[in-house]
């Protein structure tokens, strides 16, 4: 399922909504999550899962081709952990 298929399904389930509004609903949800993570906040959606940001400290890496060392600066990576309910559903197929 892609973003546009998700919009399509939501629109079909809610014929009273304008297509434009359905697009904004989906957009708002993912924008909110993105903004929260960009502030370093967590997003916890019970039953679904939790998004957080993990910090990767600066390190000395190596260029695998030349072997020369390169400074890799600190970075932040988004992380998702599936919630209990979703994890269980994956394994019962329901």
């Amino acid at each position: 399922m892609t973003r546009s298929e998700l919009i399509q399904r939501l629109a079909e389930m809610n014929p009273h909504l304008y297509q434009r509004d359905v697009e904004r609903i989906i957009g708002t949800i993912f924008d909110e999550i993105t903004e929260a993570l960009s502030r370093g906040d967590r997003v916890e959606l019970r039953g679904f899962g939790a998004f957080s940001v993990k910090r990767r400290g600066p390190r000395t890496g190596r260029n695998p081709r030349t072997g020369s060392s390169v400074q890799v600066s600190e970075k932040h990576v988004p992380f998702f952990k599936a919630g209990k309910e979703l994890r269980e559903r994956l394994n019962t197929g329901r």
């Binding site: 949800i29 909110e32 999550i33 967590r42 997003v43 959606l45 019970r46």
Partner: peptide, 8 residues
């Protein structure tokens, strides 16, 4: 802080 369904 932690965002929840309510914030969304």
């Amino acid at each position: 802080r932690t965002l929840t369904r309510a914030d969304l």
